[in-house]
Design a protein around this nucleic acid. Structure first.
Ligand SMILES: [Mn+2]
Ligand SMILES: [Mn+2]
Ligand SMILES: [Mn+2]
Ligand SMILES: [Mn+2]
Lengths: 148, 148
DNA sequence: TACAGAATATAGTCTATGCTATATTCGTAA
DNA sequence: TTACGAATATAGCATAGACTATATTCTGTA
């Protein structure tokens, strides 16, 4: 392999890696929002409302952290809230929550079908769900269907 | 279901969820370090040294970001470096890099065995790899072996 | 060898995500 | 109805991880 070929190959590798890590950084930027929105939707179903204190308790973070994160979700048009009131999803937030839940379930069911013990599957799914491309999601669904 | 049973069940759910999200936050805290260490090891193998500029180019971030992250790795005893010199793994850093690479490969090979197209598999593996419990890793290895 | 360009260092800034401490408001039980 | 405990708000702080702009140092080539 000539020096110029090595250089070209290195450059292409770098371009590919760059895109890969950019995708990961983007996934992370959306991750917390997806978990919050899914949780707000679940709490609303279960309790009739989503309170900051309940979100904080589920996540294991302080209520201040929740308040600040909810403020960002509000800024981004994903939830609405008034002082001292519970939190509501906007249509846009609800759409994201629904998609996140569907994807989360797909990953969880897949891990269970693969033979992962339930406790590990539930923990791993919480992290994995945010890094799944449509192609992988499709492959997971197909596997689960065949191995239910 | 009585009110007290509901409460107990809710409380247990919260405890379980809390642990789950704590694991995810911990995964994230280690994620960037793992990717850097793996990359430093790879660059050292490929080029004889790992320079900040190469790491920056692979990751698609500025060299300042790399410098600051490397400073944290140094603080944590995972790399060594002198001003204007390239970066080296400590034994501890090398151990983490090796484990990270093994796990990364396991996840990638698994996704390929599952039928995910190579480009998607490579991107998804970069994110998924940090959220895999030993139980899931084992299940993936077994699947890949049977479906190579 | 000298110098131009590449690499690295440093200063300063920003956002996201976490915390504690304190103040305020709400909601309910007595 | 009120008072107390729960919930929420707010101020202040910290760290990680990102950036630009500028200064310095290194290194390969002329
Ligand atoms: Mn989820
Ligand atoms: Mn999640
Ligand atoms: Mn990796
Ligand atoms: Mn990775």
């Amino acid at each position: 392999m000539s020096k110029s070929e090595t250089k070209t190959s290195s450059a292409k590798n770098a371009v590919v890696a760059k895109a890969r890590f950019a995708r990961i950084r983007n996934d992370h930027a959306k991750e917390l929002a997806e978990d919050y929105l899914e949780m707000i939707d679940d709490l609303t179903s279960a309790n009739g409302e989503a309170r900051a204190v309940d979100i904080a308790n589920q996540l294991g973070v302080s209520h201040v952290t929740v308040t600040k994160t909810v403020a960002r979700l509000k800024r981004d048009g994903l939830v609405t809230s008034q002082p001292y009131r519970s939190i509501f999803l906007t249509p846009k937030g609800k759409r994201i929550a629904d998609n996140a839940r569907r994807r989360h379930q797909t990953v969880l069911q897949f891990l269970l079908a693969l033979g992962v013990p339930a406790d590990s599957a539930e923990i791993d799914a919480e992290g994995i769900e945010h890094h799944i491309s449509p192609a992988t999601l499709k492959a997971m669904r197909e596997f689960t269907k065949k191995n239910a």
